[in-house]
Amino acid sequence: MPVDAVLTTRDPEVDRPPGRPAPRSGNRTKRTKWRPVKDQSKFEAQLDPGFAAEIAAEVEGGERLHQCIQCGTCSSVCPLSAYMDLTPRRLIAMTRAGARDDVVHSMTPWVCASCYACTVECPKQIPITEIMHALRRISLREITYPKRFTTPVMTKAFVDMIQDRGRSTESWISMKLYLRTNPALLVKNAAIAGRLFRQGRLGVRRARINGRDELRALLKAVSA
């Protein structure tokens, strides 16, 4: 899975995988290949000065992002920041700087697990998790989410199913997802599915509610 390979870095939370030596300094025997560094300079014309305000308006209490002191608490309580291309702190800083393009293309909001640790711990009480959701909305709207990354695909599959039936059925969601992302997984995980089925934990009957029309009317009314 290429995406996974890109994202996987050494997680400081757990043991180094077996066989991987401790990082050490010293003489290398092999010359490492020179890699060009991405141009990090930002011209004011490339930045969107209204971006922070746009995000702030999307979220209840979002205006507090202007008060961020860049302390990094969010990044360090985040269980997944090691897998993010921008730590939550940097994402806030870049939002504030108006680096719209980098922010909406970032994987960070899609890596976020919505565990709310950052929201609870932020000393400035910035609703960071909700800001992540707002950034996901923009990235879905503008189709800037990472390709072949399952979370946005699943999000859409999930929403479609509920719009249609009012409830989701895990087995069907998974099926859809495999088909859309990596059908090979269907075979790989067949054993798990079989086990769950025998344990009675794999609902195969597609659930749906009676008030489907009512639900669609409600969703339409609230978006009107």
Partner: peptide, 27 residues
């Protein structure tokens, strides 16, 4: 430069065993 999120005795690697571990983003 980073505000400490937590201090824990949870060791995630052999070097951390028996120590207190301070977790912070080096911003």
């Amino acid at each position: 430069r980073g505000r400490v999120a937590g201090v824990t005795d949870e060791a995630a690697s052999p070097e951390e065993e028996g120590h207190l571990v301070i977790r912070a983003e080096d911003t």
